[in-house]
Structure formats: C-alpha cells, structure tokens
Design a protein around this nucleic acid. Sequence first.
DNA 1: GAGTGGTCTAGACCACGAG
DNA 2: TCGTGGTCTAGACCACTCA
Lengths: 250, 250
Amino acid sequence: MLVPFRRQVIADDLRSQITTGRLQAGERLPSEAQLAARYAVSTPTLRNALALLQAEGLVEKVHGKGNFVGQQRSRVTYLGGGRTLFADLADDPTQRVSIRSSAVQAHGPLPPLLEVPTDSPLMEYLCIRHVGGTPHSLASIYVPQELAPEVTPTEAPSYAELEGQLARCRRVVAIRERVSARLPSPEETAVLRINRSLAVLAIARAAVDGKGRVIAGVLLVLPGDRADAYFITQLTTTGEQTTREQRRQG
Amino acid sequence: MLVPFRRQVIADDLRSQITTGRLQAGERLPSEAQLAARYAVSTPTLRNALALLQAEGLVEKVHGKGNFVGQQRSRVTYLGGGRTLFADLADDPTQRVSIRSSAVQAHGPLPPLLEVPTDSPLMEYLCIRHVGGTPHSLASIYVPQELAPEVTPTEAPSYAELEGQLARCRRVVAIRERVSARLPSPEETAVLRINRSLAVLAIARAAVDGKGRVIAGVLLVLPGDRADAYFITQLTTTGEQTTREQRRQG
DNA sequence: GAGTGGTCTAGACCACGAG
DNA sequence: TCGTGGTCTAGACCACTCA
C-alpha cells in the first residue's frame, strides 16, 4: 500500500465517524453524490469506499433510499458439531425460520457431501432464517429419499417439526463440517439482500449414522457481517490415536 | 437478477472456457484491452468480470504480466480441533513456513481471545506458509510472556521447533476456534498477494490448559480460493449434557 | 416526478514486470 | 522502453423508492 488509495482514505474517515458515534446507528448517510462532492472524488470511487465499509457491515445500502449506518447487527454464532442448526433460535422471539420443500436430484456439491450418486432423488428443505423481519441466513437441508421416506410430507413442516423428524428417523453419531469463505452467488445476494462484495461463510455439513451413511446434508450460508461459527474441542490422548471430546459451551 | 449484467455474461463465458479446458491451467489470458474489445465492453466492466472469476480462484492476476488461468490450486484443508496448525505440512516438500517473531502488546482482538488485559506483553510469531514458492496463508501465534517465558528465544525458531516449545510448556486440554468470513485487509492482500475481492477464512483459535487459561492464541488467515476448514465431531449422549468426541480423520 | 443507488462508458494517469 | 494491470474520472442511462 505505497499509494494511499482515495477509497481507503474515505473509508477510514467514514469508519471513524461511525465508530466514534458522530454517525449514529441506523442514520442515513448523505447521498452518494453529496459525499462524492465532499471528498472531491468521482462517484465510482466513493462507491468503492462505501463497498469497503459495507463488506465490514458498517454500512448498508438500500436501493432507491440511501446508505445507512449498519444496525450493529448482533452477530449470530453458529455452534459447530451440534445436533441442531439454530442452537440459539429459541432465545430470540424476533427470529423465525421459513421453509420451502421440494424434491430435487443430487447435483453440484451434493453427491460428494451426501455420498450418493449424481441425480439420485433427494428432499430439499430451503430454510431462510429471519431476524427482525429481514433475511439473515440460508440453510438448505437435503435428505436422501430412500434413507428417510418418513421425512417427505406434502405440507412443509415448521423448522422445529423438521428437526424432530430428522432426529427420529435415524441416530446421528457424527457430524462433519467443511467451512469455506467465498463471495455470495447472485441468487444468494438476492435472497439474503446482501451486497455481492460481502463475504459469506459457507458450511457443508453432513450428519452420519452408525453405519457410516450420510442421512442428512446441509448447505449453510452465513453472511460474514452478522454470523460466525464456533467450535470447541476437548482434547484427550489415548495412545497413538488422538481422540477429542467436545463439550457444549456452558 | 432481472438484468443480465454484462460482467456476469462475460464471466460465465470465460468460466466455461476454463472448465471445458479450452483455456488450459496456467495459460495467460489475452490482455484486458483485447478482452474488452472482444466482448465490446469498457475496461472497468471487463475487470469486474475478471474479479468475479478471481474470487472463485479461476483467474489469477499478476500486475505487469497479465491474467492467468488459475493453477487449480490444490485446496489445503485446515483440520480444526487439532494440536497442530499445519497438519498436512510434512506431506508436501514444496511447502515451508517462515517465521518472524517480535514482542508486542495485546491489542485489537487479542485481549478477548487470550483473556488478558489490553497492552499486556505478548510474544508474536508471524508465520507465513509458502506453497511452491508463493505465499499461501498467514498464522499469527501469540503467547503471553508470563505464561510461557521459555518460548522467548532471541533467534526465531523453525515452525517445528516453535510447535515443540508450545507443546512442552503446558498441557493443552481444549481448543476453541471462531471461524468467520471477511475480505482481506490491505496488509493481507499485500503479504498473501491476493486480490482485495477474494474472501478469506479468518480463524481465531485459543488453546486452553487444564486451569482454563489460554496459553496460546492464533489468528489464521486462509484465502478462500485455496483453503477451507474441516471439523469432525463424534456425538455421544450422556444424560442431559451433550458430550462430543471428535476423532482424527483416518 | 424527484431523488436515490446500480451499472456502464471511454478515456486518463500511475505502478509493475520484462527485455 | 514497452506492454501490462491498478486506480480514478466525469459523466450517461436505468431501476428502485416514495411522495
């Protein structure tokens, strides 16, 4: 960074105004044209500066309305290795999970995740988590139809009912989770109403039963400005093999 | 996505050329000016298209040389919950880890991670993992000086020596890891030679001893196009409390 | 319809890499 | 020196929101 990029200078200035409280949470920023004039830069440069802040969750852009200081979103923590996807759901009455179910065929990342052949029949449950009325994160649950025929209702269940059905149909003895960082797909930007420059945490999660079969797979998408994942591992040594125990946070 | 953005159309076309093999791995793309002329768009629009592909790891930009088809970087898997940071280091002779040590004071995310007061003295070990001669990922190891006085050599140790010193000085019984997705800082883009639009996986890792003290903290930065994190959890139920065992991948 | 952000243009100038 | 990518300009046009 030999050159002090204008967008960085502008972003630093606006960031300090936000963190020091001179710009209150939820407050609307001046229009991009006004800000561009104030900093004596072109609109693309100012927009690049705002994109930096938006990627940090400090600024939220609303098409046709303006730029707003981020609502200091309470970060939601996804607890890894658990039996449930939304461990903290019951704590907050403003949260709800909408579900849309459909029959699909295994494609893309699903065959290796579920260890099923390509195009094998699956039930898909597209879960959208809402916090305070706005979309928060996505979870696509996939269940092989031959492994869980009882989890194929014609009516979409509530999320709690779906969790119960999944828990009953077979015993989960292991969870495998692959975590990666990427930018959202255009569909994810539309559904989650996030900017394409906001990194997301993508978690591919497989629940394994006692026979080593994957009985359910989940593709989680957590926007990086409002969620992270937490893993706790208890270590114990038993000879050559390393065994780990993990205890739920108190 | 009502409008088929030109950058998306261009990115889709180039992506298909890469995935179908018409553009070979490592091959140099035509210059941005040539590509802009071919697709009849302006240079910023073409660069936006390339940025999409770069964020997917399909294209690598080299200042002054050109754009190249991604070397199909073998994704490195960070194994969560382990005693070592680089579990797969010994497998690949082209990999090495450079270390630069210095004494610092706890700041930023370090006090809550290490559970120490702000400005308390720490030893910092800035580890840069190289694969095939190019930077791959970052790991900043922090050790409270009063908890590990023996880990303060004047000479920077090798990474293996550092691991050994950390393992000897106190017994680690638990690992806590917080995983988040974000865009890289300007410093990280410079050190890792990545584009600012490439999402990174940021892992804050704390190693806890038998008395609940954090004896070492690590801030990991893994570029999203070449690394992800993997967690395996074995589940066993013991009454009300949920206990999990985790076993190393075979 | 007025104001806003979203996308794109057709250049300019600078920094980097190789000959 | 030359070609390359990196940054930025000063607009244009469209889509969205709200009065």
